Simulated scan of single mutants.
Amino acid sequence: MSLMKPFIQTERQQRWIDTLLEQKETFQSHTKENDANGTFPHANVQRLIDLGYTSLTLSEAYGGENITISELVSFQETLGQIDSVTALSVGWHMGVTGEVYAKKLWSDDMLAYFANEVKHGALTNRALSEAKTGSPTRGGRPGTTAIRKGTGWLIDGRKSYTTMSPALTHFLITAWVEELGVIGTFLVPKETEGVEVIETWDVMSMRASESHDVLFDQVFVEDEWFVERDPADRKGRPNPYSLHIASCYMGIAQAARDEAVQFALTHQPNSIDTTISELPNVQQHIGEMDVTLTQMRHVLYGVARLCDEGRMDTFTNEMAVAKYTVTNGALKIVDHAMRLVGGQSLRMDHPLQQHYRDVRAGLHNPPMDEMTILNAAQAALKDMKEQMN
């Protein structure tokens, strides 16, 4: 917590961080069981709903608190320290609602409707990925289709990696609309006939997120549920709320560091007269972790502050670099923590082995590392060419 203190700027921010930390014991009471069985932390997410957390990113006009990006980052980091799956899962909902209401992507009627749903417990996530097209960030056209039928649309397709699928009340899905020649986005209530969650999630990382496939078999929705008709509304416009992804992995890294430092201060082999915290090689690991954490946090919160100041129009690759910096730094920190603690960190009942598995999921959340690096290189070349002309 002490490393985050310089980045806490408001009373509201501190109040919510304190509230989230108060949930730590309860949220962690089933972490091992959920991870082992791959079962979603329903109770944790329900508690966040009851606290009003899931409506924080709604704009004030629709009954939310319109929290800043810096506040969101600190809240999601705090959750990441407590329970990684809870943080990543609810983060997707926060990221979606934040972007939709900040950019007013939907009609006024639909914004009003869904804000009311969120305030009564609704949860959503974008279901974009498909087995054949891979990550949507790579530009593939979805195999899911939407065909005009009467007063609405008939949707057919299958989405993969739908995080929090058991708890979602609404899916925000992309589909190819041949009639318009565009990739459209539809808000589909989970109880709609033809919607089925198919339990396919069996992985080593974020096991309890239940990021299953979702099948849309001849799903009919009325025209008003076709909420995003112009891909240009999102394309090329950074979503600052996507920083929730990096924030989660920042939290995991902090938790791993804390576990290792606590171990160093309490573990005393009978071969030495003090705890291992006095050993130079142990202090080397601790120092490496804190230097890396400081670098990560300054990049992440620095980008968040620029977003809050409305300076995203000056961005080239900053948000992607923040995600790249944090996720790769988190891998290094967990590695240092496990080297410090030693072989017992590999025990299945030790928290570090779950941190090790969960933090690797960050490599596969968008944007991908190679795209970030390629974009950085291309931006550098473009900038230098302009200077030379």
Rank of each mutant, 00 (worst) to 15 (best):
D358Y: 00
Y324H: 15
L340C: 02
N375Q: 05
Y324E: 12
M338K: 07
M371F: 12
M348T: 12
T325L: 09
H336E: 06
M348Q: 13
D349R: 03
R357A: 12
K323C: 07
G329Q: 12
A376K: 00
K332G: 06
M371V: 10
A337D: 10
Y356T: 03
A322T: 00
Y324Q: 13
D335G: 14
P367K: 00
E370G: 12
V326Y: 08
G362C: 04
R347P: 06
L346N: 13
R347I: 08
V334N: 06
A330G: 15
A337T: 11
L374H: 09
T325E: 09
N365F: 10
D335F: 06
L340Y: 02
Q353V: 15
K323E: 08
G362H: 03
T372S: 03
N365M: 05
Q344L: 13
A361T: 01
T327D: 10
S345E: 04
M348H: 11
P366N: 14
Y356R: 14
N328A: 00
A330V: 06
D349P: 07
N328P: 03
Y324P: 01
A337H: 10
P366S: 14
I373L: 12
G343R: 02
H364N: 14
M348K: 13
A322W: 00
G329W: 05
L374E: 08
A337K: 07
P367N: 01
P366Y: 10
L374K: 05
E370T: 10
Q353C: 14
L346H: 12
I333H: 03
D335H: 14
D349Y: 08
A337E: 10
M348A: 13
M338S: 02
H350R: 00
Q378S: 03
L352A: 06
H350F: 03
K323H: 15
Q354D: 01
P351C: 06
P366C: 11
D335R: 12
G342C: 03
V334M: 11
L352C: 02
V334Y: 09
M368S: 08
N328Y: 15
K332I: 09
P367Y: 01
V359H: 04
P367S: 00
D369T: 14
E370S: 15
H350E: 03
R347W: 12
